[in-house]
């Protein structure tokens, strides 16, 4: 499915949070796994994240926050995407996300929500799985 076009993923921190160590590790790991990686830079607004994702037609948006604002900020990205009627871009999350918040994010379609110490292979597998779903939808919608 990804033969001609590798998985395309946008890494973003949709808030005022400078903890970018994990982003840089993931960027390299995704690239080593053959993915096409974009990084939204620091302090993008949820709107900017969604605009970039749509313009670049990515398969997955990978969001990270370590400042405790994930419920507000991740939801904004998901809402904006939905408002545009886009269902072929998946959202995955990560950061310092308490277990009790995970179901709330899952309900918004934001999956993964991995904490520190998660093996890179687990994250790569999950992103690939979500990208496959997106790609199927993209093909379906022609």
């Amino acid at each position: 499915m990804f033969k001609d076009k590798p998985v395309k993923v946008l890494l973003a921190k949709p808030g005022i949070d400078g903890h970018d160590r994990g982003m840089f590790v993931l960027a390299r790991a995704f690239r080593d796994a053959g993915m096409d990686v974009l990084y939204a830079g620091l302090l993008p607004t949820p709107q900017e994240v969604v605009d970039t994702a749509v313009n670049e037609d990515v398969d997955v948006i990978a969001l990270s926050l370590l400042n405790g604002a994930h419920l507000t900020a991740f939801k904004k990205v998901s809402d904006l995407l939905r408002k545009k009627g886009i269902d072929d871009i998946a959202i995955v999350g990560g950061g310092t996300i308490p277990d009790t918040d995970k179901p709330k994010l899952e309900k918004l379609g934001i999956s993964g929500n991995y904490g520190p110490g998660t093996p890179l292979s687990v994250i790569i597998d999950h992103v690939t799985k979500r990208a496959t779903e997106s790609r199927k939808k993209k093909m379906g919608s022609g």
């Binding site: 808030g15 005022i16 302090l43 607004t45 400042n67 405790g68 604002a69 507000t72 900020a73």
Partner: peptide, 10 residues
């Protein structure tokens, strides 16, 4: 707008 959800945290 950027401050939403962040005021008084941390």
């Amino acid at each position: 707008k950027r401050a939403e959800g962040e005021v008084g945290k941390c």
